[in-house]
């Protein structure tokens, strides 16, 4: 298998140009910090400090506030993430129907803990809040796709689709 050279998102100058466009669009509007951080994360995949600094300067808000908001919300990542994000639902309905066993299987298959990213940067594993698909419990999402009525045995095949 050919090894694809992975350039970190912060090494690509166009990414900062796109970020500047976002900042220009929101500059001066109230309540714009969260949408700007959301768009920045779409561009970079995560929110490294230099991106946060750029946003603080651009929107003229203190760096402490940008960092405070970035670390407060679960959606924002300060470290690079894997190519695919696995969100296993740990809502109550899934929990009483055995999502714990699914979590153990995922950890075993991927060799990482919750919040971790696999060495090959393929997967990031997260335990999410209720996905609102309780009828199919236990449920997980890989990127935008929902997998329901899970049993531990099903996990390897599902992961293989993304490998």
């Amino acid at each position: 298998m050919a090894v694809k050279e992975v350039r970190d998102a912060v090494d690509i100058p166009e990414n900062f140009e796109r970020l500047q466009e976002v900042i220009d669009e929101y500059k001066g509007k109230s309540g714009s910090l969260i949408p700007v951080l959301q768009k920045a994360q779409e561009i970079f995949g995560y929110l490294p400090l230099e991106v946060q600094k750029k946003i603080a300067e651009g929107l003229k808000v203190p760096m402490s506030r940008v960092y405070g908001v970035s670390t407060f919300y679960a959606q924002f990542a300060l470290e690079p993430r894997g190519e695919h994000t696995i969100g296993l639902c740990m809502g109550t309905a899934c929990y009483v129907r055995g999502s714990n066993k699914i979590l153990e299987k995922l950890k075993e298959e991927l060799g990482i803990d919750v919040g971790g990213t696999t060495e090959d940067k393929k997967f990031t594993l997260e335990a999410t809040r209720c996905l609102g698909a309780c009828g199919l419990a236990p449920v997980m999402m890989i990127d935008e796709n929902v997998y329901g009525r899970l049993k531990p045995d099903m996990i390897p095949d599902i992961l293989n689709k993304y490998r």
Binding site: M90, A93, C130, G132
Partner: peptide, 11 residues
């Protein structure tokens, strides 16, 4: 911001 686990009526 329906956050209660196991509630999806608003959704």
């Amino acid at each position: 911001d329906e956050g209660d686990p196991g509630a999806f009526m608003d959704r």
